[in-house]
Amino acid sequence: MWSRITYTLRETWASFKRNVTLTVAAIITSAVALLIFGLTLLMQQGFDNLLALWEDDVEMVVYVRAQASEPQREVLEGEMERQQGITIDSWEYCDVDCSLDVKDRVLAGSPEIRDRLDENTNPTFYRVVPTEGTDLAELQSLAAALVGVPSVISVNLAEDEIDLIDRLKDFVGQYTFFLSLFLLFAAVLLIWNTIRTAMYARRREIEVMKAVGATDWFIRLPFMLEGLVQGMLGGLVACGALWFINGRWTNGVAEFPISSSFQAMVVGGGDVVTTCGILMGIGALVGAIGSGIAVSRFLDV
């Protein structure tokens, strides 16, 4: 068993060295495709951060002063109760801890700004879900009424923010997704071609192996492993590039004005690690598909 493993690894390595140009081309193509795919995932995560306030059909966010007292909030809640069943379906209060959690996501790119926020400086807020059928004019009129309540700082309507972010998210997401799919297809073809070339270079060896009774899997395995490793190396290179780009973006965004909202587009290290895992998995899959097709198509054992 051990001799078979060492044989497989040795042959895989020998094949890498023999087809170094094609192998490098296949790895670079996989890496570029996976990098674009990884950037798509991170951008989607960034857009999701921007939309964090507007999850679960929330159409309106009412910001309350950081140190608003319980009675002051009761006045606001009384106002909203009067509208319940008419324009407001439900609301949810995001208290100090909850609103600081949201800021953790939104200000991931500006930790120094986040550090300045505490229960005395960070406004809490209400997420308001309007009743079905409430139109924009009614929502604007409701917002105007609520903004007059003394503890309220401002009222943001989803209509103003979500549409823009959603459109941007869809636009960027679709184009980068299809571009990465296209490039992944190119990577599959390149790996397929590399494996085919490797098999052609070793055709006499394969012929002898078949003649002396090597099993199908013994012959196929080094080629399949080669494709798999190419895909995974592509994933590894893409991960390195993704880590670098994300680091540069995070540092760059820290210098942007807070009002630009770009801080929310920064993705934390945990998400990058998860994305890297996904990229390695897809890289392995691309390699396995490319080499698998080549082996079953050209290795008649």
Partner: peptide, 11 residues
């Protein structure tokens, strides 16, 4: 030796 290697004969 190749004829023996590929069918898993020990070294």
């Amino acid at each position: 030796a190749f004829a023996q290697q590929v069918i898993g004969k020990p070294k």
